[in-house]
Design a protein around this nucleic acid. Structure first.
Lengths: 208, 208
DNA sequence: CTGATTTGATTGAATGACCAAACAATTGAT
DNA sequence: ATCAATTGTTTGGTCATTCAATCAAATCAG
């Protein structure tokens, strides 16, 4: 029954943390939400920090599953024979859907970022969180760049950092203001990325 | 002496909060850093939240001053007769300089964002923080769009949200990982924005 | 098959510390 | 003598973490 109980704690932790926030949630709150004794959370997780990391990982599962079902695995290889720009388009589409569907996950994520600013353990988890996702964007960027008429000045990693950053900057605005039109912002980001990816080589003076 | 004392508290608050973070800093810590009695901070600020907001506003002053000296006022009008794309280039340049110079301010800012995820009072302050800065970017975007050969599908507001978001997504990566190459990422973002702003109208089939 | 023993899971209370905010008392200037 | 500024303490509550004790299930001995 141990695994079941641990899962129950993590799930309760995710719900409680997402609803009330990290610093406003006590270990006791989480145990109560799970219907277990106050001390038990510490039997499975040494610290509250560990539980936060586990809870976020748990909360991301459905979203990552959604990407996988669309053929995009953060870890695995990109679908072969796919037009990189088409992959990018799909990525932006999924990002929009995700933001609408998992609002509280994004909220908790930015809460974690905040904790990470002054907590080394959480900061390490945040770095890993970012690395995984940005690395995925970088693999798509690589393909997009390979198909460009003119090599860009920026590396695929830099493009990925800017693009992933753009998405998360938009997520931030959405989390802080539910009336913010995130879809329009993501469309704009996509329009910029596509303008970049499909730009024609600088025409010389004697253009057609 | 009242104004002086208040300023002293805000300044001490900024230093302490930036160093240790919001939830790891007590009102007592702040008073001690200011060399004042523990109770005094509450004489000038009703709540710790109010003091956080004041401290961030205070911490932003030097940075905003830097923008003003370059001719870019967040509040006032844009310099007249300036090429909008040149303003954009300057903005990206200043963003790079700022990030290198005020690292702890950015760190505290993301801490505030985190607190804002589950604290209505701070959330309101964050919304205002975002609105002011994004509005400034929107005014530049407006000019850039006006100069484009082909009207983009996205509005100036959406473009601004994506661009401001891109910058802050990059700041996030830098705050979480000091070895992150933020300059390269900002250059990449700029490359995308410029590709977008200077793209040629789609050539029809019978191109030169 | 049965009773004893071990193991790990679970409980609920205790510990030790901390903090935001309120407050009463004191100072100092006008 | 008043009033604002300042002090230092008190209040009333919080929390993460520890721990001794209980419990259930499994393992083992005879």
């Amino acid at each position: 029954m141990s695994d079941q109980t641990k899962e129950r704690i993590v799930d309760a932790a995710y719900r409680t943390l997402a609803r009330r926030g990290y610093h406003e949630t006590s270990m006791k709150d989480i145990a109560a939400e799970a219907g277990l004794a106050p001390g038990l959370a510490h039997y499975y997780f040494e610290t509250k920090e560990d539980l936060l990391v586990a809870a976020i990982r748990h909360g991301c599962e459905p979203a990552l599953e959604g990407w996988a079902q669309a053929g995009l695995r953060q870890d695995g290889p990109l679908p072969e024979n796919a037009d990189p720009l088409e992959l990018a388009r799909l990525g932006f589409e999924l990002a929009k859907r995700e933001l609408g569907r998992y609002e509280s996950l994004f909220r908790l994520t930015f809460d974690m970022f905040g904790v990470g600013t002054h907590n080394p353990k959480i900061a390490a988890a945040v770095r890993q969180f970012i690395d995984e996702r940005r690395g995925f964007v970088a693999r798509i960027s690589q393909g997009v760049i390979a198909g460009m008429a003119e090599r860009p000045a920026s590396s695929a990693d830099a493009i990925a950092a800017a693009t992933w950053g753009g998405l998360h900057g938009i997520y931030l605005q959405k989390v802080m203001d539910p009336s913010f039109d995130a879809d329009a912002a993501i469309d704009a980001l996509q329009e910029m990325v596509f303008a970049f990816a499909t730009r024609q080589p600088a025409r010389t003076n004697e253009e057609g």
